[in-house]
Design a binder for these strands. Structure first.
Lengths: 231, 231
DNA sequence: AAGCTAACTAACAAGTTAGTCAGTAAAAGA
DNA sequence: TCTTTTACTGACTAACTTGTTAGTTAGCTT
């Protein structure tokens, strides 16, 4: 396993959504009676879940507060407004990802291995931040991506484009459109998680979150993308 | 062009979003002073746009009414409730698609050609119903897909699975997991449209909706999926 | 132990939103 | 032409939502 995947070490064990909801990324120190940082983290967690479901407009501050155990006034005390809370929510996991991604030495890897690694990290991030992908989709659909640009996602995506361009120049990849290839790859990596509730109606028996299922999904995603790229 | 694509005849000309918003599928007869069917259609159009942006919970009936030129009370007169309106919105383009898909003779086509056709029809549907895909995503994210099962999408998806299974048995396709392959394909076909507002921040110059861009996207999607499937 | 301040609550004000209803006017029918 | 039905409006209510504020308490400092 590449070192940067260490951030998500044990992610396969987190696949069960109930476990996921309980564990999350371990940001919260042991709870004391009055702990501003812990309270802020709890609000962010609850807000991430609420925004993932309803987006910025649809989310209710009251519902967020209800999940945390503190009152709604705390949102305004700690974050100032619903909008500032939203900005904080959309930026927090992005920082995790951008940092982990910054550690990847994609530029020195063989293109095939680089693409493989990117897909693994992307899926690991979906698993360890099970609500975040949906927050970003709502962002695109209802805020025209105006807050997306604050997150720092642009740089990692451009690095993946560069990897594909390098692969094409080396004759390892076919002369595909790198931009479209990146879009396809992101589509593959995210649809499984975002559209799941609909797709469950088609295959009610399918297990989505067992470690084996995630493993199969990841391998299958890598296989399709690499087949599509390789010369 | 396959006959079932006739439903979307001229779709390449509709790619510009402004043209799209103006044309839509031509359901509305020439407007009279009082025309219940025309009013219902206008409400459905406006609601589709609003639900695409905010989902069921986030959408405001007042905003829907404002787009139509009739009062909010008309929504309740013609549809009874916000929920019934939503059901109507989610079912209308599904009927178009399921009908068009029903006309496809996938079972008698060579598997490769069948997959190619499915992708073309799916993308054509996104183009001719530019808001609908996002309505379905909101449905998954905030309603757990409870209304999705009313739409009849399940059957077309199962037919695509069958096509892939047939291709595998014929030795034309690799022994992939057909279910995951369908998920990947849907991811590729939908991400380009649903996440666009975010992706515009990465490539601000990219043209998404020119006929040429849609053509390139379609070819690129077909190439990746077929490369991923072919033995 | 007394005093201070950061963290927190309960209750409320101001503005929104789903849904209703009494009434009006355009058509269609007699 | 008069009546009935259908499409539609404006004004309303009850419930909900964001954000505020006055006051309370935990825990730290001295």
């Amino acid at each position: 396993m590449h070192p940067s995947l260490a951030l998500y070490a044990g992610w396969v064990d987190w696949c069960n959504p109930w476990i996921l909801l309980a564990t999350k990324v371990n940001r919260t120190p042991p709870r004391q009676t009055r702990d501003a940082e812990a309270t802020k983290a709890k609000i962010l967690d609850a807000a991430e879940e609420e925004f993932a479901k309803f987006g910025f407009n649809g989310a209710k501050t009251e519902a967020i507060a209800a999940k945390t155990g503190v009152t709604k006034a705390m949102i305004y005390y700690h974050f100032g407004s619903k909008e500032e809370l939203y900005k904080a929510v959309i930026q927090r996991p992005a920082e995790d990802f951008v940092n982990a991604f910054g550690d990847l030495e994609l530029e020195t890897m063989p293109p095939e291995e680089a693409v493989k690694t990117v897909i693994k990290v992307a899926i690991a991030h979906e698993i360890s931040h099970p609500h975040y992908g949906r927050v970003l989709l709502h962002e695109a659909m209802q805020n025209q991506g105006q807050y997306f640009k604050l997150t720092g996602w642009v740089n990692p995506i451009n690095r993946v484009i560069a990897v594909i361009e390098r692969g094409i120049q080396a004759g390892i990849f076919r002369p595909v459109d790198p931009w479209l290839a990146v879009n396809h790859t992101m589509g593959i990596c995210t649809f499984y998680f975002n559209a799941q509730a609909n797709m469950r109606n088609v295959q009610p028996e399918f297990e989505w979150f067992t470690p084996e299922a995630i493993e199969r999904f990841t391998e299958s995603a890598i296989a399709m993308v690499l087949a599509g790229l390789k010369a």
